[in-house]
Write a protein that binds this DNA or RNA. Sequence first.
DNA 1: TGTCGTTTGTAAAAATCTTTCCACACACTT
DNA 2: AAGTGTGTGGAAAGATTTTTACAAACGACA
Lengths: 289, 289
Amino acid sequence: MSEPKTTVRELIREKYATLTASEKKLANALLENYPAAGIASITVVAQNADVSTPTVARMVGKLGFKGFPQFHQSLLSELQAKVQGPTQRRANWATEAPESHLLNRFSQAITRNLSQTLSNVDHDKFDKAAGCLADTNGRLYIVGGRITRALAEYAFTHFQAIRERVTHMTSSSATWPHYVLDMVKGDTLLMFDIRRYETNLLRLAELAKERGVTVIVVTDQWASPIASIADYTFNCWVEIPSAWDSNVSTMMLLETLIAAVQEENWPRAKDRYERLDEIFEAARLFRKP
Amino acid sequence: MSEPKTTVRELIREKYATLTASEKKLANALLENYPAAGIASITVVAQNADVSTPTVARMVGKLGFKGFPQFHQSLLSELQAKVQGPTQRRANWATEAPESHLLNRFSQAITRNLSQTLSNVDHDKFDKAAGCLADTNGRLYIVGGRITRALAEYAFTHFQAIRERVTHMTSSSATWPHYVLDMVKGDTLLMFDIRRYETNLLRLAELAKERGVTVIVVTDQWASPIASIADYTFNCWVEIPSAWDSNVSTMMLLETLIAAVQEENWPRAKDRYERLDEIFEAARLFRKP
DNA sequence: TGTCGTTTGTAAAAATCTTTCCACACACTT
DNA sequence: AAGTGTGTGGAAAGATTTTTACAAACGACA
């Protein structure tokens, strides 16, 4: 089909900036459950998005439709086109972009990586590792390599929010001895080491291990040498059509670990979150409005 | 759903014998163009089948529906089920862990987020934004918020590897004026702003915009206020069963952007990668084995 | 050919959905 | 602290859709 073919979805995105607060709410509800959320009477659509009928009518107007029925009809045709369309669009992933577009090639690779990563996690070890990360009797050290420094930082930001006694070992290895000096049995060291494995990190792991520290390493599918001495190893699939490696799956694993720790420490973590929010709020008030 | 799972089509076939002449005419029209012919107002359906409205109403009653709206709804659900059909179900990449295990709950949420994010990227805008990020005539500034600082850093590490003239604006907003001072038209500002949106970032965006800088913002599904002044906005779905937001989809989008820029700048980017590797290799040799 | 039962469509009534109007609420300015 | 403007939802008015009522048309059978 060579039509200009603007879908309602595109229309919403296009005008999104010009929408008001509750219109955005509606837009999100629509996009979230598209197009189902839009195919109903205006009253129902409004209710499901938790806005008033006029808001729906107004937004539909803004999108360029003459009235709700027209909008409704438009969604309906889209739905129908989809059904009759040439061999159902591939999965959910396909955006409206052509098959060969980078977005699609990428999403495919990433999907594969996530799937591989997940099916290679031993959930028993996962739980145990989460237990170590949650244990506040010991100190938690976090360290990453050149590229994974960002992940280490992300981990630090979150772990700091949900538990005490967390240390981010900066990536400058010159400072590491200071930290190692204080490591004792019962502490945990969370390491990120993705290929182009770094010798420094291996040395660090060895030193930590000598002191009875529990070592958890998040690495790639080929496994960093650290894996052979670590207590817990997690392999993340990282290949993408590119010169470098993807860290999406690593990020997912990390977030899941954080969530697990949060759950384990719940009442305390919650308390910390709330206090943290309060402090940020207070800090914000220092600034002039 | 309490439906006995019969499609309207089957229902029609089943009762076909008991239908009167003009009802059969209607039934045929319906089956001929199913389900489209049924999805419209009763008047239109009647007209298309060349029968009267009451005939439609009567037949719908015979099929066991309480009224035309119910019949209409039923067809709609069928249509929708067809669209989402096999797609949704297959996304079950469970590990061996039980359904309810955090790993699985998480993977499901994240899958959803990725899918939503992808289907809401406008690939045209994506390409254009990538173009800006690749343009080395202007300088590229990168900045993140409290949580997204890690992403900004990740972005910086990679962009620095594939192009010149990249600046990471540290998250301490006190230093921002220095950077803003040097911003000129043609520069690009890549911002990350996930909810708990930060006023600082908005101000920064405004200042940058005043200077003619192209602003690209990566935000969440609810859209940071920056979105309304930014040149390019990308919405990432971030909700997970947790007290905080996931950045997996954000990471994916970021990586895809990086890959796009890399592709655009290919020969040069490749060269930089190689030289960078050499330098790292050389640095490694300084250390004793 | 007339009567009866059934089927069918017209048209009016009822129900529902959509739009419009207006007042209130909130934020931002003076 | 009052004023202005925008955004929002309640509720009535307007439009459309659905249902119902009823009478004309048709065909079967006596």
